[in-house]
Design a binder for these strands. Structure first.
Lengths: 295, 295
DNA sequence: TGCGATCAATGCTTTCAGGGTATCATATGG
DNA sequence: CCATATGATACCCTGAAAGCATTGATCGCA
């Protein structure tokens, strides 16, 4: 038994006429009759009640007809779908992003892509920038939004946006009243920042900001999660330099200020050059299109 | 593409090794490799990433694997189920019965059969005896419980039970106080009975009961449904002769009495001899088994 | 009742899809 | 750099299945 046999069976079950069914299968009647006999023999079941004048389905044949319709439908769907997956119209795309981008480019990127490729399941995975790089290389992620860096081994990169860093603090902090805030004003402040191992690009941008003036930031706490940093600032344990896009949704007790000569960070979309997932290419294309409009 | 190709694909997808997959398919490696290439070519999709050292699934291949597992499962189920239907273990049985039997043999018959053949869907259809005969001949019913009669053209019959007729009346009816009730006592009563066209066996039993004494029943109303007959008796419009098994569940205002030399009716299970539904045979067998115990 | 028409089954021939064997090509590891 | 493992190719051969011709059975109509 095979799907071809099921198709023969269906042709006869629907026409109840060997000649016309054979014609539908683009063959002559004699081999068609033999195939039907073969099917019945291999199943050990009489599917048709027939004489030289009439053809009718047996109860078993009627039941088999429903099952065959079902199987053949699923079979063709499978063949169609595998093409869609190969073309990137369907399937799955594992998309990583850092929390710093969750409120800026990610929502738009996800929305645009979901509209363009509604049958691709986007698996979102929030990670720290370092985890993202590892997972991209390991192939655990298909694409990700992270901070730009020189380390782009086997990775293709699309610049999505440039973010300026701002400083956040409690509203009752002395700096909240300052006219202008730069490295000099900050070098005696208790700075809270993610560790180098977690967000190298962000941390090096902060370090450079100070070292350009011959200074060194006084980093007192190094939580790995952005969420934690903001909470610690809210508790008055220090101040933090964070991307501007995150400053819109601060809690009640917090405020943000621009930095003089503020450092910039690239927010990029990255994917392995060697990716085998065909869904990635249009994802990157949409990233490029966003770049045109947002910068 | 065919299910055989899907099986080849699954073998390779699961082993990721051409040699071992070919072995599993009971063939040598070279033709197996060709078949895999054929599949990819006919689908127009690369399913495996391979060199002379490693074999790996592409994303499209991974997706196809799930679909193939599904299709192959359903395919085998269909082949298994059609055998079950042909053997009468699965399928559908359209079972007709007259209301006179609904409270006696039908529940037991249905229960016993459902236990013996849980995968056969019993389609119950309550009909008048005449409708039942027509539908059995037309093939609209596979089997039915009805009154016995001589007319058994192409029908096989199993005697399930013998029912005596009793007379029912309102509790305030004069006959309710009678010592013994026979044709003489009834020939002046207003009789309510189903028409000959609806229940010939029942009606002829009633007629014979009177004619044996040279009398003729005075039938004033002829509703087709048993339910209606009982309601009319309850309204005081007459009395009725009905099978004893129906007398247990009479409404509040009604009562029943035995008839002297009471007429008997056979309750039988019938099916076309030429039935093509393999589920019928055990249904009849169970009827025969009930006959042993009930009579 | 007999004849022609219709339609499924059967016999025979042919072809090509698909399997087998031998061999090649390539990547890996010691 | 060679031995080994493994997938791809080349070539041959068998048999499943298609085609053609024909038979056999049933039905409708004269």
């Amino acid at each position: 038994m095979d799907t071809r046999h099921m198709r023969y069976f269906m042709a006869l079950a629907e026409t109840l006429h060997f000649g016309r069914a054979a014609e539908r299968m683009n063959m002559s009647q004699p081999p068609f009759s033999r195939q039907i006999a073969m099917i019945e023999h291999s199943l050990g079941v009489k599917l048709f009640e027939r004489n030289s004048r009439n053809v009718a389905l047996t109860p078993a044949g009627k039941h088999f007809m429903k099952d065959c319709r079902n199987v053949l439908g699923q079979f063709e769907d499978a063949c169609r779908d595998v093409r869609l997956v190969a073309s990137g119209m369907k399937g799955e795309l594992r998309f990583g992003f850092m929390m710093h981008a969750a409120h800026s480019v990610v929502p738009q990127l996800v929305q645009l892509y979901s509209e363009a490729r509604p049958d691709v399941r986007l698996v979102l995975d929030e990670r720290t920038p370092t985890e993202i790089d590892e997972m991209l290389v390991a192939g655990t992620l298909d694409a990700a939004v992270t901070f730009g860096s020189e380390y782009t081994l086997n990775l293709q990169t699309v610049l999505l946006a440039r973010e300026r860093l701002r400083i956040i603090m409690r509203k009752d902090h002395v700096l909240a009243a300052a006219r202008q805030i730069g490295p000099m004003a900050l070098c005696n402040e208790r700075i809270i920042a993610a560790p180098v191992a977690t967000a190298p690009a962000l941390r090096s941008a902060i370090n450079s900001y100070f070292s350009a003036k011959g200074l060194v930031p006084h980093v007192v706490l190094e939580p790995r999660l952005q969420h934690t940093i903001i909470q610690l600032v809210a508790k008055g344990l220090g101040v933090a330099l964070i991307p501007a896009s995150l400053c819109n949704e601060l809690g009640g007790g917090l405020t943000s200020r621009a930095l003089s000569d503020s450092p910039q960070l690239d927010v990029v979309l990255r994917a392995p050059i060697t990716t085998k997932n065909p869904a990635v290419s249009t994802f990157m294309e949409i990233g490029k299109a966003m770049q045109q409009t947002s910068i």
